[in-house]
Design a binder for these strands. Structure first.
Lengths: 192, 192
DNA sequence: AGAAATATAGGACAACCGTCCTATACAGTC
DNA sequence: GACTGTATAGGACGGTTGTCCTATATTTCT
């Protein structure tokens, strides 16, 4: 049976490095050094670099599901839950300012590489999309627009994250979040 | 004296490949094959890969300045000019759906690589930012908010482009553009 | 304790990378 | 038409990549 603890340490290190350096720019040597094992030992845990990527994406999917569940517990109303998502830009500001959005940047990179796992990577995005859609359905009882609103908020998040890492301007991010929260609050109020 | 025509063919090919495949994923071999010259011949035109990147970014800066001047000629009012920018997502849809926004994706990639040219790359973004800011100043005579509005439109563009290439959904892009144009029109009207 | 299975280390491997060198082909000048 | 400087081709170079092989520890089970 595989050593689960080491497996997880490898995936966690790869996850972090793929985020900070990008998938292609991260070598086996980088991951091995981060974990503290030899390169040769790698193939007892994962049979290729693509295999590690697959595991990293699955890890992100799991972590995302966990995060969404946490938000559902923290915030009771759909509006507050959507705001939880919007505010993730300030919550993770320290990393976003340096490396952008982990979901968006990986999806974009794999898309350019035409990598087999690009579809799997976009599922993380879809996880947020469906969750947001569910919140909008709960919010306004107009399900035909819920997915459009979810995509709108998702696009907002991606755009702000991109500019945030380009200019590293926290005031801009705060301003955009405030504007979005205001808009969402008005939207929720007019639906009552 | 350097062969200017070949210089330009190399930069044009590199520009295209950097956009479609990413900077790091594009090798000298790729560019040489695209241009139809040998690898060894390369260093008579550019002395390193970074040097080509520098030339590519300068090319993009030039092309962007040209584009912005064209928009100023095509559209007479500041509102129409801003809308020209917003509609670039549909104008370049065929490429954006496959490779995302050339400005945003390069900036993000160079940022992750911590490449020396990352600052230069973000100047393309700044070119749009300053141009948009000038249009907003001309629009509403409230210069203290013009840069914020420019950043808002820029973030919109980046966000929609990211999701556009992830989901390749043209209806979503059209919907977002319509919404943004409507918002801009209202903004211009209330300032009269 | 002995045996079987797993974990680890270190290096070999071919392929590719960016870079550089050299020999040849070609241009324009006297 | 020989000469000079540029353009081009092809390959050598050291280094790195992902992958794989083999020998040695370590653990687990009987």
């Amino acid at each position: 049976m595989a050593d689960k603890a080491t497996d997880q340490r490898i995936v966690a290190a790869a996850d972090d490095l793929f985020y900070r350096q990008g998938y292609e720019h991260t070598s086996f040597r980088d991951i091995a050094e981060a974990v503290g094992i030899s390169r040769g030992n790698f193939y007892h845990h994962y049979k290729s670099k693509d295999d590690i990527l697959r595991a990293v994406i699955e890890r992100r999917l799991d972590n995302t599901r966990l995060l969404l569940r946490q938000w559902e517990q923290q915030a009771s109303s759909p509006l507050d839950r959507i705001i939880c998502f919007v505010k993730i830009l300030t919550t993770n500001w320290a990393k976003i300012r340096l490396y952008g959005c982990p979901v968006g940047t990986l999806t974009t990179e794999l898309s350019k590489l035409d990598h087999p796992a690009k579809k799997q990577a976009s599922e993380v995005l879809t996880l947020f999309r469906q969750w947001l859609k569910a919140q909008f359905i709960a919010l306004e009882k107009a399900p035909e627009k819920a997915d459009e609103l979810a995509m709108h908020v998702l696009a907002f998040s991606q755009g702000v994250a991109t500019l945030a890492s380009a200019y590293r301007d926290k005031a801009f991010v705060q301003r955009e979040i405030d504007g979005m929260c205001k808009w969402l609050t008005q939207l929720a109020a007019q639906q009552e």
